[in-house]
């Protein structure tokens, strides 16, 4: 087995993970970890079908020298029990960070999200990296995602020799992405909160993959918001996609969606409505100033990508 130091990518079998693998495998030795099989895996990529919480993960570190980790093995499934969710995200992240510290990994990149700030009517128009992570105040079941961000944050301070980067990209969209924003924008008749039209920020998954790879470059460290090609009112996104939004009064929407979600007629928990009612936009200038990374897709292309256009 080669002794060339590798880059470990957790959650590699997801859409974003595969996009990162595609960018990375030709120039780096990539070690993928995921519970799911990697469909269409490049031949030169080493894959371990493992749960990141398991002890066995450490065997990988023992066998292969790892110089950097991109950690994106983080679950976002509103249907999963909050306990499993929390368990996987928090314990998984802890395991990976512990291994990183123990096995002298030089670089740790953690994929968080701009959603950790949470949408709220009193948000500033552009939240900087110093803004408090308030998402759980209105949406308690996302607190594990905040915990993951905080764990990475704590790791950054505790292990000053490791270059830790926490990326908080805005809503990730893409033709195959199945997260809440992409699924929502793909609806033919999405709800809109009558009288509300917040500015939204979207980023294409390929641009996020590019940012994750850029974060591996020596020198980058710290927490960065990653914004895509700009801000746009939600109504313009619908117009661009040709969807026919259904205005629902906000006082009715919450209890209604809550019932629909409980009986599985809807796949969005009612708290997600905050995202189409209030602002949660971030300032990505720190990342833009400190790195050469720029989004490759235009705003229009990014919006259209959710329907594969």
């Amino acid at each position: 087995m080669s002794t060339r130091a590798g880059v470990m990518v957790t959650g590699i079998s997801g859409n974003l993970g595969r996009a990162v693998a595609k960018l990375l495998h030709l120039k780096e030795r990539v070690i993928g970890i995921d519970r799911r099989p990697f469909i269409g895996k490049p031949k030169d990529l080493e894959m371990h079908e493992l749960d990141i919480r398991k002890k066995k993960v450490e065997d990988v570190f023992r066998r292969v020298p790892i110089k950097a980790i991109i950690h994106m093995g983080i679950l976002h499934d509103p249907r999963m029990s909050s306990e499993d969710h929390h368990n996987f995200n928090v314990r998984g992240t802890m395991r990976i960070l512990e291994c990183a510290a123990k096995h002298n990994v030089k670089k740790v990149v953690v994929l968080s999200s701009a959603n950790v700030y949470g949408p709220s009517p009193d948000n500033s128009n552009f939240l900087t990296e110093d803004a408090p992570l308030m998402a759980a105040s209105r949406f308690p079941s996302v607190r594990d995602l905040i915990e993951v961000d905080m764990l990475a944050h704590a790791f950054f301070w505790k292990h000053s020799k490791v270059e830790t980067v926490v990326l908080r990209p805005v809503h990730i969209v893409g033709p195959t992405i199945k997260n809440a924003p992409s699924n929502f924008l793909r609806l033919k008749r999405p709800w809109l909160m009558a009288g509300f039209d917040p500015m939204v920020q979207l980023i294409h998954m390929d641009d996020v993959a590019g940012a994750l790879v850029e974060a591996l470059a020596p020198g980058h460290r710290g927490v960065y918001n990653v914004t895509g090609p700009g801000e746009v009112p939600l109504s313009k996104v619908f117009a661009e996609l040709g969807s026919e939004p259904l205005p629902v009064p906000h006082l009715v929407a919450r209890p209604l969606l809550s019932t629909l979600f409980r009986y599985r007629f809807a796949s969005f928990p009612p708290e997600e409505l905050d995202h189409i009612q209030f602002l949660c936009a971030v300032d990505g200038s720190r990342w833009l100033n400190e790195t050469p990374w720029r989004p490759k897709l235009t705003l229009r292309e990014t919006i259209r990508s959710v329907i594969g256009g």
Binding site: M199, G230, E231, P233, K236, T298, L299
Partner: peptide, 9 residues
């Protein structure tokens, strides 16, 4: 931007 709004809306 091309959608006729500035970043603040």
């Amino acid at each position: 931007n091309e959608f006729g709004v500035d970043p603040f809306g």
